[in-house]
Nucleic acid binder design. Structure first.
Length: 572
RNA sequence: CGGGGCGUAGCGCAGCCUGGUAGCGCGCGUGCCUUGGGCGCACGAGGUCGCGAGUUCGAAUCUCGCCGCCCCGACCA
């Protein structure tokens, strides 16, 4: 490809809307352009990168025995009503009506459609197991699209669905997918981690997420360097502190703490360890208020709390609700002397405290030396409702946890029979008995991977594409082509030779100054650059430089094609 | 939806407080010059100042409403 025909459009300055490095670079390098909130056009250069991701995904999916299909992006409402998700999916589901006033949606995922297909086609256990996948445009009407294609509303996703006669069959494919995903992200040159995950809206039981590690990631991951344990913080279990609770040694006393609304501030004033304070979080669930108790240095994990009986759809209580229940404003509330209308749920770590500090349910006052069983009843419910922190013991009993951040690029689920029961996806087993299928689903955010890869691979000059993702493998930059016939003809010949050798090569044939060409080729992240200039040609040499390196190497003109090919092969 | 901020040339911004002529840098066009890291000089094109009302002799500037976008919280590939 010649730059003059590529429709390449780079920017010196990034549009103000872009916050994240990858977003800025994708705009500056001319990979994408924004059409509307959460909607992006892929320019030719960017589309080539997307195709690279797709190619790796297809190769590995096919290798597992999965077969590709393509389902409609628009789906009839009836299927979603049948699965129950028409009412439960919420506003992320973009609903549309056709000219006959019939309801449809723009697919955010395809369990219903694939389920409908399979129940029509699969009649016998002899047809199982089967795994179908597609690479399709999805639409989720995100509350807040952001970070360019990282969290877009419309995006490209590889989604696969497997169907099995029994759980053992599902386990086999789930494991195969886990391994295929690991190969995909490794092939793409990404530093990633597979973690145990919450199943969210898709539903089901077993689940793993694949995260590209990046400080800008939206997810927090807990992992144990001493073992294989890794889980999304949403899910990672905080173990109960070991040993039994110490005996009470202090008497409860009321202390004045004017304006101290946080555990940090209160403990600082009292000179006490924040790990001996209790923070009370008031939430509303199932029509009543609940006070959640956490150790002062811990934070509430709403997902864990919402899994407790009667706590579904919990939300933080409003200031008015808190005032009504405790007679005091947020910042000074606590579990002592609380109305019995409010149930108390204590985190394991909070429940293990003795002689602790907590709010007095009176503005500008806290209580110190408080003890369960003496100053207030033992908490009715003790559960794991906090986020793990660095240094917590690993749930698998080996070592301690560390935290890092990740970008979720893949997610695999064991759906079991959630959809097959709802939609009656059934087959006849060996005994002629009708059974519903076991089902798994497996997603990869194709377009998100492009952003994640850039997030992980860039420098001050721009993108540094991993080999497998690069839109071109080599860029040829001729210097002074307009005044040197030799430079021009050597560059053209090299362009042709590399193309003939099967190398994806980009020739910068623009009549630009060297600095412009260098800057653009660096910005768009082509892994290798060959400079053709009179300076080198005098000695029969060309310059060959890797994007990550500062220095270029001189290579004999007659050896350059072979040199390039061997370097590319060494990487593959 | 709640909280914060922004909308002025393709991009990045100034002007707005204290109403009166719309400006800078980059990019774009033409010419000259230059040619190994976003070169220099000259000339030039390009703007319903987000939209709609209102106040005023006069509104980019003040007021109100609407729209769009960005950032922080609940969603997720």
């Amino acid at each position: 490809m010649r730059v003059s025909r590529l429709f390449l459009s780079t920017l010196k300055e990034a549009p103000a809307e872009a916050e994240l490095v990858s977003h800025r670079l994708m705009l500056r390098a001319g990979l994408i352009r924004r059409l509307a909130s959460g909607l992006y056009t892929w320019l030719p250069l960017g589309l080539r990168v997307v195709r690279k991701v797709e190619a790796v995904v297809r190769r590995e999916m096919n290798a597992t025995g999965a077969v590709e299909v393509l389902m409609p992006a628009i789906q009839p409402a009836e299927l979603w009503q049948e699965s129950g998700r028409w009412d439960h999916y919420g506003p992320d589901l973009l609903r549309v009506k056709d000219r006959h006033d019939r309801d449809f949606c723009v697919g955010p995922t395809h369990e219903e459609v694939i389920g409908d297909l399979v129940r029509r086609e699969v009649k016998s256990y002899r047809q199982l197991p089967v795994t179908l996948y597609q690479i399709q445009t999805k639409f989720r009407d995100e509350i807040r699209p952001r970070f360019g294609v990282m969290r877009a509303r419309e995006f490209l996703m590889k989604d696969a669905y497997s169907f099995h006669a029994d759980k053992a069959g599902l386990d086999v494919t789930y494991q195969a997918m886990y391994e295929a995903y690991s190969r995909i992200f490794a092939s793409l040159g990404l530093r990633f981690r597979a973690v145990a995950a919450d199943t969210g809206a898709i539903g089901g039981t077993g689940s793993h997420e694949f995260h590209v590690l990046a400080d800008s990631g939206e997810d927090a991951i807990a992992y144990c360097p001493q073992s294989a344990f890794a889980a999304n913080v949403e899910l990672a279990e905080a173990l109960a502190p070991s040993g039994r609770r110490p005996d009470a040694s202090e008497t409860m006393r009321k202390v004045e703490t004017p304006g101290k609304k946080t555990c940090e501030a209160v403990c600082e004033q009292l000179g006490c360890d924040i790990r001996k304070s209790i923070k009370a979080v008031m939430v509303h669930a199932s029509g009543k208020l609940h006070m959640l108790l956490l150790r002062g240095d811990h934070s509430l994990n709403e997902i864990k709390a919402a899994k407790l009986p009667g706590m579904e759809r919990l939300r933080l209580a409003s200031a008015e609700e808190i005032k009504e229940a405790t007679g005091c404003a947020p910042g000074f509330i606590g579990p002592v002397g609380l109305s019995s209308a409010v149930s108390i749920i204590a985190d394991r770590s909070a429940a293990a405290l003795a002689d602790f500090v907590c709010g007095a349910n009176e503005a500008d006052y806290h209580l110190a030396g408080v003890n369960f069983g003496r100053d207030l009843p033992e908490p009715a419910i003790v559960a794991d409702i906090r986020n793990v922190v660095s240094g917590d013991p690993s749930p698998d009993g080996a070592g301690t946890l560390e935290l890092c951040r990740g970008i979720e690029v893949g997610h695999i689920f064991q759906l079991r029979k959630k959809y097959s029961d709802a939609m009656n996806i059934a087959f006849l087993d060996e005994g002629g008995k009708l059974q519903t299928v076991e089902m798994g689903c497996y997603g990869i955010g194709v377009t998100r991977i492009v952003a994640a890869a850039i997030e992980q691979n860039h420098d001050a000059r721009g993108i540094i594409f991993p080999a497998a993702l690069a839109p071109f493998q080599v860029a040829i930059v001729p210097i002074g082509a307009n005044k040197s016939d030799e430079v021009r003809s050597v560059a053209e010949q090299l362009y042709q030779d590399l193309n003939d050798a099967g190398v994806e090569v980009l020739l910068d044939d623009r009549d630009e100054r060297p600095g412009v060409m260098f800057a653009d080729m660096d910005l768009i992240g082509i892994p290798y650059r060959i400079v053709v200039g009179e300076r080198g040609l005098k000695n029969g040499e060309l310059e060959f430089k890797q994007r990550r390196e500062e220095k270029a190497a001189n290579v004999r003109l007659e050896q350059i094609v072979e040199h390039v090919c061997s370097r590319l092969q060494a990487e593959a």
